[in-house]
Amino acid sequence: MFAYGQAAGLRFALLIFFSLALMAVDHRMHYLDNVRAGISIVVYPIQYLVSFPSSATSWLGENLESREELLEDNEKLHSQNAFLQAQMQKYVSLEIENMRLRRLLDASERLTDRVLTAELMAVDLDPFSHKVLVNKGLRHEVYKGQPILDAAGVYGQVVQVNPIVSSVMLLTDPGHALPVQVNRNGLRTIAGGTGSTSELNLLHVPNNADIKVGDTLVTSGLGGVFPSGYPVATVIVVEPDPSQPFAVVKATPQADLESSREVLLVWKEISEQEKALANTKKENRK
């Protein structure tokens, strides 16, 4: 009706202004998280429907498996479980020893982190950023910036939390950087995403740094987002370049970014001592 008139022009101008305002606010501040959460409930049925075929086929696959296959699976899991438990025994005693030593040193005790399994939804997001949707949200106390792991290593972190689902940025997204250290000698560096799911760039590694192909990188916990000590990647390329201030070092993520279907959400548990420490620091600042 107003397709050509002044009213249309005015409305157009208003919409443009409104979009620009939205983008500015969404980029800089967090006021719009609720708006996004609201709309996300409206679009959730679409996301659910889209991922339904893949979840349905996996459900069918699980339910139509033959008895023999199940028995075989069960046996395999049993032996794996026994193996892991044996390893765990060693780990438990080590953990107790570690705690005792830390107490001796007056350092804060590390607690075990709380985890929850989440499933990836088969929904394609923007093809030029590495993001996926998982089926846990505000309802499950997921928070922005929460670390995500899979069975083999660090997977990424939560970037948007909606009531039912949340989106996760993989650690290979070009906009992602993760403080890591070399497990062998504690050399600290930063692993930046490259946009390829099999490659991370290690930033600012000096040419003479002690880093070798095959080194395991673990989270250093310095960024304050990831708990320390989780495996991240394996170094695959080390090329010192004397003409440049830093060496070219590449690593490949240990997490199975392309085919993991289940991931772990991690809650960092802060021990009482650390809390007290943080409080005194705050007070000192005042």
């Binding site: 249309a8 919409l15 983008m23 709309i39 679009v43 949707l133």
Partner: peptide
């Protein structure tokens, strides 16, 4: 026209997790 286009764009922004308003602006 532009009104519905704008709302659809906003929905796409939420659906694909992009900056709120970028597809809305483009589609309008």
């Amino acid at each position: 026209n532009i009104g519905i286009a704008w709302i659809m764009g906003l929905t796409v922004d939420v659906l694909t997790g992009t900056l709120l308003g970028q597809h809305a602006l483009a589609m309008a």
